[in-house]
Amino acid sequence: MSDAILCRFEAARSIVGDAADLAMSMRPPSGGPAATLKSAQDWLTEADGAVEALISARIGALFPEDGFQGEEEGRTRTGRLRWVVDPIDGTSNFARGRNRWCISLGLLDGDLPVAGIIHAPALGEVYTAVRGRGAVLNGRPIKASPVTDTRSAMVEMGWSNRVPKGVFEEKVAAILRLGAMPRSGGSGALALADVACGRLDGYLEMVINLWDVAAALAILEEAGARVSPFLRDGGLEGGATLLAAAPGIADDLSAALAVSLD
């Protein structure tokens, strides 16, 4: 990977660390949701905007020629290199004072994910990857799960209000028929990070956005997971389906869930 990408990655790690400190300082206490409801189960907190603004300003000052896209403000700058941020992934958890949320920042070179940072400060975890240099969790190399039998697998599915009625239940039923254990944790980025490090054996979301997955795509690739062609299937410009899986059960999950990995 080029020196230009590595320079950006190192700067971004520091910026995301500062953003994580800001998010922690703004985290609501445990209890009912302290947030605005945009639509069913789609929450917005003051921290979402503040964290995105911090990252955008700092990236823009260091690399003004780069593009930038955030969940809250959209695509505010264009460039061949594009930073994509979800300032608080798992906002429903964050808004209730829970720990399972993260800041996700990915770097794309055109349509190629080249670096990713997922920082979960309440969990004390930082996942990072640079294309061709492996994936790490808190500095230690990670790999996708070695599981080869779906009967011992743990598979998470994300929920979206954009999915037609009945689809979520149908896919969860397919997971159960494989003998796998279903999960749902409320953060797509962290679920994908869990696939990358082997804590989960698969993750499916029928409609997910680029800012949720831009960092995870680089991390999953470097960790050896198999991933459906999210960017090719429209993920660069809108919501698309994403399946990520441990290689040993990827074909079984793909067939059962009717999501192609090719």
Rank of each mutant, 00 (worst) to 15 (best):
A173L: 12
A173D: 08
A174V: 06
A174W: 06
A174T: 04
I175P: 02
L176Q: 11
R177S: 14
L178R: 06
L178I: 03
G179I: 11
G179Q: 13
G179D: 13
A180C: 04
A180Q: 03
A180F: 01
A180N: 02
M181H: 06
M181Q: 14
P182K: 08
R183L: 07
R183M: 05
S184R: 00
S184F: 01
S184Y: 06
G186T: 11
G186M: 05
S187T: 02
G188E: 11
G188K: 00
A189K: 01
L190R: 04
L190A: 05
L190D: 04
A191M: 10
A191V: 02
A193G: 09
A193W: 07
D194L: 01
A196P: 06
C197N: 12
C197G: 09
C197F: 00
C197M: 04
G198R: 10
G198V: 10
R199V: 03
R199A: 01
L200N: 03
D201L: 13
D201N: 15
D201T: 07
G202N: 03
G202W: 05
Y203V: 01
L204R: 15
L204F: 13
L204D: 14
E205Q: 14
E205N: 15
M206R: 13
M206D: 08
N209S: 15
L210P: 05
L210C: 08
D212M: 03
V213N: 03
V213Q: 10
V213P: 02
A214Y: 11
A215H: 04
A216D: 08
A216W: 03
A216V: 10
L217V: 03
L217S: 02
A218C: 14
I219Y: 12
L220K: 08
E221N: 00
A223E: 00
A223C: 05
G224L: 09
G224V: 00
A225I: 02
R226F: 13
V227A: 00
S228Y: 12
F230Y: 12
F230M: 00
L231S: 02
R232I: 04
R232E: 09
R232Y: 13
D233P: 00
L236A: 08
L236R: 12
L236K: 02
G238H: 15
G238F: 13
G239V: 07
G239I: 10
A240L: 09
A240V: 11
L242Q: 02
L243P: 03
L243G: 07
L243T: 05
A244E: 06
A244M: 09
A245Q: 05
A245K: 06
A245E: 11
A246I: 11
A246G: 04
A246H: 05
P247I: 10
G248N: 09
I249H: 01
A250C: 07
A250E: 08
A250W: 12
A250V: 11
D251A: 15
D252Q: 15
D252Y: 02
L253K: 12
S254Y: 14
A256F: 08
A256Q: 07
L257E: 02
A258S: 10
A258M: 08
V259C: 11
